[in-house]
Each structure stands twice: as C-alpha cells, then as structure tokens.
Design a protein around this nucleic acid. Sequence first.
RNA 1: GCCGGGAUGGCGGAAUCGGUAGACGCAGCAGACUUAAAAUCUGCAGCCCGCAAGGGCAUGCGGGUUCGAGUCCCGCUCCCGGCACCA
Length: 707
Amino acid sequence: FGQMGAMFDWSKKVVTCDPEYYRWNQWFFIRMFERGLAYRKESFVNWDPVDQTVLANEQVVNGRGERSGALIERRLMPQWHFKITDYADELLDFSGLDWPERVKVMQTNWIGRSEGAEVTFHSEPGDPITVFTTRPDTLWGATFMVLAPEHPLVDELTTPERRAEVEAYVDRASRMSELDRQAEGKEKTGAFIGAYAVNPVNDARIPIWIADYVLMGYGTGAIMGVPAHDERDFDFARRFGLDVVPVIQPEGAPLDGAAMTEAYTGDGVMANSGPFDGTPSGKEGNAEGIRAVTHWLEERGIGTGKVTYRLRDWLISRQRYWGTPIPMLYCERCGIQPEKDENLPVVLPDDVAFMPTGESPLKTHAAFLEATCPSCGGPATRETDTMDTFMDSSWYWFRYLSPHRDDAPFDRALVERWTPVDTYTGGIEHAILHLLYARFFTKVLRDLELVDIDEPFLRLRNQGMILGEDNEKMSKSRGNVVNPDALVAEYGADAVRTYLMFIGPWDQGAPWSYQGIEGVTRFLGRVWSVVLDPAEADGRADDTSLRDLRRAVHTATRAVTEDFEAFQFNTAVAELMTLQNAMAKAKNRALTQTDAWREAQRTLLLLLAPIAPHLAEELWERIGQGGSVHLQPWPEYDPDALVQDTITMAVQVNGKVRGQIQVPPDADKDAVLESARSEPNVARYLDAGTVQREIVVPGKLVSFVVR
RNA sequence: GCCGGGAUGGCGGAAUCGGUAGACGCAGCAGACUUAAAAUCUGCAGCCCGCAAGGGCAUGCGGGUUCGAGUCCCGCUCCCGGCACCA
C-alpha cells in the first residue's frame, strides 16, 4: 500500500490481539450476558475437524469450513451464542442505507423470514407435536408427518418392531456431514417409526416418519407432509407409497392425487377442507385464505400465526487458543458467573503447550483455569473457549477514534461526531459475514446505550475484481498473476493507480491489460509536457480559443467532481484526458500567457491529484504554486463558462437523422424550425410529402413527421 | 430450482427523466520528424454500398409502444454471482 501512495494515520492503529483492544470485547460480552444477549446453550453445532473448533453458520460454505476447507461435522455441544435472532426483523430493514442491491438481497435471504403458522398435532399416545408451516391452508391435505432424525420425541414414539431400522437411520444421519446430506440431493430417504398422529383439523390418522430432509435447526424440527402441494413432500410420498390428497384445486382440470406427477404449488380453491371448501387460496395472490385458516386455528386453540427465520443465533465460541478469552467462570456453588470488570482483561497466557491433538492448550493450563468466583469468593474454573475473530471486526471503527483509551471502549463524543461511517468500501465476500455482524453489534451497542446510531455504514460500495489478461481469475496455477509491486517498479505508482481507475467501472472490475497501462503512462507523460514544456505557438490568442479553453476547464471540473461522487472513476480519468487534449490545442494557439491558461494548469493538477498524487504534487511545485496540491480546496466550476455561442441540433425526418443545424442556444422554436427546414438534405425529405407534426426538443433535436 | 447482475466496434468501455449510439483509451491505418528504427506529434477510423454527396444496416434474439428505443413493455437465449431439501 505504501508503494502505491496510500497514507495512513498510524497514531490511530488498533491491534485486535492486544489486550488493550480485546479487553473491550470481554467488557461487551459481559454487558451482553447481563442483558441475555449472550447465552450458553447445548445444541447441534458445526464442528471443523481440521481446525478443531466449532464455526458459526455464516462460516460454513457448501458444507466446508470457511478457512480450513474441511468437511463440517455436526456435534451436540454446549456453546456460547449471541442472540442475533432478536434483531432479525430490524436487520431486514435497510431503509436509509445506500447499499448495493445484491448485498441487501443476500442478507435478506440469509435471514430468511417466513410467515406461517405453528400447528399442534398429537401422537396417538398423546404427545403434542408442533409443526411450522407456511401453508396452513393445506392442512387438510396432510397425509403424514416427518420429524428430524434428531427430534427429541423420536426415541419415545418409535415402536419396538421399528426400533432397529429407526436407530440405524438416526445413526447414519448423525454421522453424515452436511455436504453428504446435500449430495444425496432430491433422492429422499427416511424411516417409518411405527407411530401415528391425528390431524387436528379432520381427525385423519397419519403415519409418523423421520427423514433427514427435515432439519432440527429450522422451525420446530417437525413438519406435516402435504404431498399434493409441496415438492419435497411429494417426492417423499411417491418414494414411500404415501397418500397424495389434493386440497387446493386450480382453475380448469381438477387434480387427482393418484395421477399427479408433481406437486401443485400455485393458487386455487380449497377443496376437501371442511368449512373452507370453495375458499380461494394460495401464496401468490390469495393470502386471505391462509389468514382465514390461521384465524380459525387460533380460535380453536390448534395453532397460532408464527414468523420463522432461517437465521440462527451467532455461535461465538471457538475452541482455538488464538482469540479473546470468553470472560466467564464456572463455580460449583453459583453456576455460570461473569468475571468482574476490574479483573479485565482476562489475558491469554503466553506459556502454553500446544498439543499434537490440536486441542486448545488453555484446557490444560492450570494457572489460566484457576479462578475465584466473583459471587461467593470460592474456587471457580475459567471458560477456555475464545471468541470468534469476527467479534473484533464488529466494532473496530468506533475504536479507531480513540484507540488507546483505557477507561472506555471509545470516546463517546468522537463517536457522535464521526459515526456512522459515510462510505464503506470492501469486497463482496463480506456481504453476510462481517457486514451482518457489524450491523447487529451496532444495534446492540445502541440498546446498551453506548452509541446513538442504528446502522454502522451508510453507503456501501463493493469493488470489482481485476482479472488476468486471459479474462480469468488470477491464480498461480493459471500463471496469469500480475504483481502490483513489479508494476509499481516498472511504471510508477501513479501510472498503476490511474490505470486501475481507468480500466473499467470500479465496482465491476476488468481484465488486466499491459497495453492499457502503456496508454495511461503516455497520458501522464502528456500531462507533464502540457504543463511544463514551453509552447511552440504559431497561432494567435483569440477570444474564441480562450472561451473554448475556459469551457473545457469548467466542463472537466464539473464532470470529474460528479464522477468522483458517483464512484465513476473510469469516466473521471477520461474527462481528465479530454481536458489535457484541450489544453494541448490551446497551447498551439499561444494562450500560455493568459490567466485562463494558468487556471487550466492549476485545475488539471487539482483534479488529477487524488488519482496521480505524486505527479500532481511535483507539477504543482514546478509551476510555482505554494504548499501541497493535496491541501488545496477542491475547485468549483463556473456555470457561465459552460455556455456556448452556438449549439448543434440534430434534425430528424420520420425518426431518421437527416442533417444538423447550428443555432444560438437561446434560439426560439420558430427560428430553430426555420433553420431546420432550410437544411438542404432535410428539405429534400420534407418535399417528398406533407409535414404532419413538428417536434422541437430544446438543445437536442428537431423531428419532422412527414406523410 | 429460486434470487441478483449482465450482454454495446477487433479489445476495455461511454451514453439509460427515451432525443445525433460508440466519449476516453488500447490495438489498427496514413502522414510528420529521423539516414533508419524507437519515442513523440498530427490526422483517419462501427459494418456494407458509393469517387463523392449520400444511402442502408447496427447495442444478445423475437415481438410491441413511440415522431423517435441501447434505454420502456411482453416473450426468449446465453454468461457471471449468491442461495440451495428452510417446510
């Protein structure tokens, strides 16, 4: 970065593995624990066998650990979580944020809000089994139930004659990795547990199955099977010979359960549904059917309206040594206790013995483990899990403002002055990890009354990726990697910077081109000569040339300013090239002794400075300007300088351009039409028929309709 | 499968409140300078027909609206990215 001319204020540096920083991770953790936002719970978690730690859902990609790439296993373990689900609805609200659509969509999908109802069935022995459904209007079509293999009722409900098969299935499911489960794809597997349930709306006796397509971590871990109107349930029913009973009939040919080849998920009219027969219903346009059934279920105490999210609480524990120690203690008498604030930071010991098993060395470090219960003063054992490193990045921008304060995580006044962050740039890979956690954490800090803002980053932009010259992602194996250090050594930082801005739209990226950077290098060379080389003027300074120069300068000032604000750096560079070309022309007209020329020189350098800082600074000094170019006010454009003596308007006949006219910018409609009609080529076409309509778009064109 | 974003000259890309498509640059061609080359400078340049004037065709494909469509509407194709049995 240094070589590229980037500048940093190192006095604001933060080091997240320094106790000076992570003590505040611990302090926040304790505040969250006090509010019930941090809690310890035994649940099925993602276990990375290579890194020997659990991972958050957000850190599992296609069934593999985000860092290690190892196949993730499911384990039942007690772990610390942050209650991000409490904020699910608020996190779905992006109003006031100027963020890329795709990031908002990704977060929305990740949170996965579903409206529906919970409905309670009962097994024949009497246990209530609650299911979640988004289609309560299809309840009458439920012909079976499916529990997740891990569902707590499986063991109790399984009949003796089915036990062997069921246990084998549960065992197999528990051993399979997430990826293996997914690899089985649409081919459904499952086992009948021998028990039956009663459908509360029509008293139908329906078999209870287990299958791994039902996930313990979503909804209630149990579903009603409505094969006629759900694709997955349909596949399952066909595979195991279960009944298919349509209860939503589309317009036209009625469905026949025995003959259906796929589930019908569209809208229709309820049938076979007791009091609701004939009610229009479906997900698309007829949600009132769903609402009516939900209301009916609530009146009868069978079910309730319910919103379910895909989002799970943020699993914050890690079994790694490197990380912020979770500041909690286990006391035999008092249970789980937070460490006292005055004992923070709980420091990571540096005299640990790493084990060949990969297990965290904290687990066997006696001095670390031994602690005193803050409640009773008796002996306690310290928590050995550390925090996910995304904790560090969830609030660092607040800390930047006052990185060394030791009495508070940050300076409140500075936070109010500087946050939220106006513009945040970064890679799309943070779309649902860092950016979701950071939003959550900001809202938590707000609720802890530590900050006054709801969102951390107002405007977000994702940069595109520079590809290899072969238009493929750069990689060592492809041999298409372009090394920035070598480029800076060969072309200089300014040329590399300018080309990276010019290569294409900043948020889109583009393939690298050595010929392209040569072109930009030539441009910077021309900037040097146009500013410094003595003029070889053979022309004479005239008013028109002078006005042309001033117009070029002020047009560029406006365009570059607007482009910068819109992150359109490629067109900003193009505007600077246009200005340089205009200046080269002016130079040949002997304008170099004029004020307009000196303004042009200054403006070119001021506009170029953010892109090619070294060149701009050097030239700024050489033309005798005082101070640094980077400390000057940004130039403003003069609207009067943009006005032209004459403008060119296109003339169309029946939609085709047949000529151009030069008119004063303030010419009235009749004058413009007169000029257009007298253009010889236009006249030819007008004479061929009768003019039906005359359209004048001021400053743009004239259009004749001729029949 | 669902969701999001794209498709414009030989190449990277401009132009989207509908108003002269191809700014700027790369590559290319011609010329100047040079003994020559490089560098630099000047000019030309979407494709087709034409000496020219000019005309025709053109923004992934097929329709539509409009005086006028890269831009709006309907129906497709392909490419990139995300999610993926979430009930």
